[in-house]
Structure formats: C-alpha cells, structure tokens
Design a protein around this nucleic acid. Structure first.
Lengths: 205, 205
DNA sequence: ATATTTTTGTGCGACTTGGTATAAAATGAG
DNA sequence: CTCATTTTATACCAAGTCGCACAAAAATAT
C-alpha cells in the first residue's frame, strides 16, 4: 500500500511561492537581461533544482507569463464587480490595473507596468513562441473587456460594437502600462483613464 | 595652411547610414538581446571601429533612440500636413504611424512596432538613463500631438483640454504599437485607430 | 621622404551565460 | 537494514559577452 506522499526526498520549497519570486525577477529585468543566477538568488534554489522543477529559462518565462495573465484576470474581475453602472465598473477596472502597474497591489510592489507589455515585445521577433504568447495575452484582454461590456449592456449593443469598444479599452490599458513603467504617478494615470473611458465607451442606458 | 579634409586615414563608412543599420538591429532584437557582433555584421564594421565612432553599446542605443524619435517626428509631421480638418489630420497621422509600425514605410520594413515602446520598457528598471529616455520619448509624443491639436483648434479648446486629448492620443498610439509588434494587420489597426480618434478628440468646429 | 594623425583589423582576456554531469543527502518501500 | 527514488549541492563545460591592446594601413602635413 502506497502512501500519499511521494517516494524520494521531499522538496524544500513551495512551487507557487517560487513561481511568484521568479515572476518578480522577470518583471523587473525582462527576459533577456535576467540571468539564472539572479533567479537562483531570488528563490534560494540552485540552478539544477530550478531546471528540474520548471525547465529552461524560456520555459520558466512562458509559465510566468500565463501565470501573470491568470492572476491579473482574477484581480481585475474582482475589481469590476464592486461598483454599479457600466462606466463606473470599467473605471474601477482601470484603476485596479493602474494600481497593479504602479506597485499598489498585492501582486506587485513596484512600478513595473504590465509584465507582458513591458517585457514581451522585445523578444517577439526572435522567437515565435514569445510572439504567440503576446498575442494570447492581448486576446485575453480583449475577451475580458468584451465580456464585461456584454454583461453590462446585454442587447443594447451588438457584438461588433462590443468588440470595438473592448479593443479600445485594451489599447488604452497598454498605453497606461507604458506610462506606468516610465514612472508617471498613478493619480495622473487614473484621471487620464477615467476620461478616456468616458469618451471611448458609448453610453449604455 | 590646412585643407578641408581631416588629417588621418579617411573613414570607409557613412555615419548616418551606419546608424540606420544599427537602428534596425536594436529595433528587431531589443537592447539586451543585441550583441556587438550582430551590429558588427549588420554594419560591416568591426567592434573597435564601432566603439571609436559611437561609444559603448549603451551609447549606441541611446543615440539610436533619439535618432528614431527625430525621424518619427518629421515623418508624422509630414503626414499631418496633407489632409484638412482636425480629425482627418489626426487619422492620417495615426495611419502613418501604423504604416511605420507594420513595416510599410521608408523607415521600417518589418512589423516591429515603435522602437521605443517595443524595446525600451524592459530596460528601464535596471538603468535610469533608459527610464529617462523613455520618459523623453513619451513627452515628445504628447507635445507633438498637443501642437497639432492646438494649431488646428486655436482658441476653441483651452490648454488643459488640449493636453488631455494629446495624452489620450499617445496612449492610443502606444497601444497600437504593442498590437503591431504582436503581428496584427495594419488595416485592422487603422480602422481601430480611426474610430478611437473620433471618440477621443472633441469636435472642433 | 619623413613624421603625424586617424581608421582599420586581429586577437585577446576577463567575465558571464545557460545547461548538465556527478555525487551526496533525505525520504519511503520491503 | 537495504534498496529504490527523488531532491539538493558542487563543480564544470562550451559558448558567448563586452571592451580594449596593439600593430598595420591610409591619408595629410612639412
């Protein structure tokens, strides 16, 4: 009879916590400028352990990107539930994203912008896997905004209008990420985002 | 009596042409993933010549960034002169930028997005010079759009309105750059940009 | 022709990189 | 206890990195 626990020597680290630590390193330095030694130091694991657990540097990075997209989605979805009214909700989502981009969220503690927007583009040309990862992130953004709008204005907007408005909001968000990475203050970005939402999204009454 | 020509052995390369070649390499691979060997191969110069002419890798990159900003400014300014009417002009500028981002311009021959937006953000945290360079590019964008709007609607919009609209357009443009780098087709981006301009910029009649 | 100045080319040197071979350590199974 | 299994730690490797001596080359100045 075999027990629940695995056979050999038990791991001395928590996988989720380690992935979050790796995420911070990539988020800060980007893919190319991050060395495995830096990751090793940040996690307390040595390179062979990292490789055994998460694969190559590229494997790690792609894992981290999709992990980030997951965490961001749940984080923004929660922010979109609280206020009422389509515009108020969208502004709340934008404000939450800006908090995330400027380091005022449980997910981030520095003004690093969006992990994908800040670090993926420089890698997309050399490696098509990175290109696909970036496209996937953009698509998820578009779909998320579309769902939010659709849910709020069911019937009053057709699918094309919803898709266009969602893409407009994604464009806005990525622009905000760049500015956050450049160090612009979150208050400025929030007022900018709020006015943009007012103008971009047709009134849903 | 000294002649016009310089004293020693004459250079065997054109400085401007070489800078443009260097720009292509950085534009494609980003800063960290670009090696001096790649630049050497693309320009036909060996590393000591490169170093003597342009300084370190970082020096080259910063030179290239401001050179890109210059070229982009004149390119977009020219595009903004042709049509008449504020919205038509802004759409023409956006379309020109999208052509630039997707490789349909004399400046670029591949869908690399904006050189600054695609490659600078991943470097800004480690080096404050890069952070300042990114901020400078954003500021130039904002100022350029502001000037365009101000010129078109002199008196009918106050400075605050102009500044906000200009920033909205910059946000839009940077979002478009990300999508161009992700490989989205230029026609889609242009229709997206046109509808966003219509909604973001108040009517100037 | 000789000296002077600038560019070019070869090559090196100290360092970092990602990935791995190999052995030690820590657990469960029998 | 003995064996199988998994994780950890040390050390290493081949390749690539940036920057720079140093000398040869090509022009002008005298």
């Amino acid at each position: 009879m075999s027990k629940q626990t695995k056979r050999g020597r038990p791991r001395q680290f928590d996988e989720d916590q380690t992935l979050d630590q790796i995420m911070q390193v990539f988020w800060r330095h980007g893919f190319a400028a991050t060395s495995l030694d830096q990751i090793s130091e940040a996690t307390g694991l040595n390179r062979p352990s990292l490789y055994a657990a998460f694969g190559s540097k590229k494997d790690m990075y792609l894992k981290i990107i999709s992990r980030f997209a997951d965490q961001m989605h749940t984080y923004l979805a929660a922010a979109g539930r609280t206020p009422s009214g389509a515009h108020a909700r969208l502004k709340a989502v934008m404000a939450a994203a800006i908090d995330l981009y400027t380091g005022h969220s449980p997910l981030s503690h520095a003004a690093y912008g969006c992990l994908a927007v800040s670090t993926l583009p420089s890698e997309t040309v050399d490696d098509s896997d990175f290109q696909m990862a970036l496209s996937a992130v953009l698509r998820r953004m578009d779909d998320g905004f579309a769902e939010l709008i659709r849910h709020e204005a069911s019937g009053r907007l057709d699918e094309d209008e919803i898709a266009v408005a969602a893409r407009h909001l994604s464009l806005l968000l990525h622009g905000l990420s760049i500015r956050a990475r450049a160090g612009e203050p979150s208050e400025l970005l929030k007022t900018l985002a709020a006015s943009a939402v007012d103008r971009l999204v047709p009134p849903i009454s």
